Amino acid sequence: MSPRWSGVTALSGDSGELDESLSVRRFWERLSLPGLIDVHTHFMPERVLKKVWEYFDAAGPLTGMTWPIAYRRDEEQRLAVLREFGVLAFTSMVYPHKAGMAQWLNGWAADFARRTGDCLHTATFFPEPGAEAYVRAAVDGGARVFKSHVQVGGYDPNDVALDPVWGLLADAGIPVVTHCGSGPAPGKHTGPEPIARLLARHPRLRLVVAHMGMPEYGAFLDLAERYGEVRLDTTMAFTDFSERLTPFPRAELPRLAALGERILLGTDFPNIPYAYVHQLHALERLGLGDDWLRAVCHGNAAELFGLPGGGP
């Protein structure tokens, strides 16, 4: 176990998960919420997920550290865990690492959404010939959120092959959860500068910056302040695991509070090295108040995706 995250406890055994379910439910019940909406969870074809877990197990170069998977379960068990927690809606964040994968992943994700009513139909893309056509097909097929993984995909979000894709998604008003920050390890095209150039061309793009843009928190908050459709998800941010490596600057908390209507709960379930409830407690201990927590954990995503409790 890496000393950099020792002390953060992953779950083991049914009794631990039962206790955690009660803790998660107490969290949202105290806030008088009907449950949680998690915009950053991973469901994908089993053989793909197995390779992702193998990468984490081997401490691959994009992680660079020991990373135990807390919820290493089969698909039905993982779904049962989220439902027991009271997660009302979640995503199946799929992403390609090379050309030729995205359309196949979109087919799998569409089928998963059809058989999983509480999953928001998720899709993805890669800079390659035909990307606009299969993204349009996914939109026409009911996709409600897209995933762009600039770090793993190793591509420039400003690649000319993606320009019609971004334009299509901006026109459709479909959110794109984008791993574009340089954590946990920088990629060739990560960081705020490529995203700033993208947003200058597509200012109406509903871009959701994954992981709060860690470690370039301040620069991504700048973009959220500049562009009214930019949002950030909380995935792994503020947790003990991330605070040891890339702490969120305390001086930025007032800006985080002011942007409370555009922060969304994300967790990276099941690929996290600690208990799910720890993400919730990490948000709570920021001290930004119950109204902020209600918006982040339910209201903002409900409004964005047109779910019950999402405002007018």
Rank of each mutant, 00 (worst) to 15 (best):
T190F: 04
T63I: 15
H202M: 12
G154S: 08
E29S: 13
A185I: 05
L36N: 02
A99Q: 12
R206A: 12
G13S: 08
T63E: 11
P127W: 00
A113M: 03
S148L: 14
M212V: 10
D118P: 04
S2D: 15
H179Q: 10
P194N: 08
L199D: 07
G266I: 15
H202C: 11
G64R: 08
Y276D: 06
D111M: 11
P270N: 05
W108I: 00
E132C: 06
A113K: 07
F125P: 06
L283N: 11
V81I: 14
V165W: 04
H189I: 04
A10Q: 14
G117C: 02
L259R: 00
R250D: 11
S182G: 14
G130A: 12
L36G: 11
R294V: 01
F241A: 06
E76V: 14
H40K: 10
R26C: 02
L168D: 04
S6C: 12
L36I: 12
W53Q: 15
M44A: 12
V135A: 12
G289K: 06
E193I: 10
R73V: 05
E46D: 14
P184Y: 04
E54L: 06
F90R: 01
A210G: 10
E303C: 01
R206L: 09
R25W: 01
W28Q: 00
S6L: 15
P186Q: 11
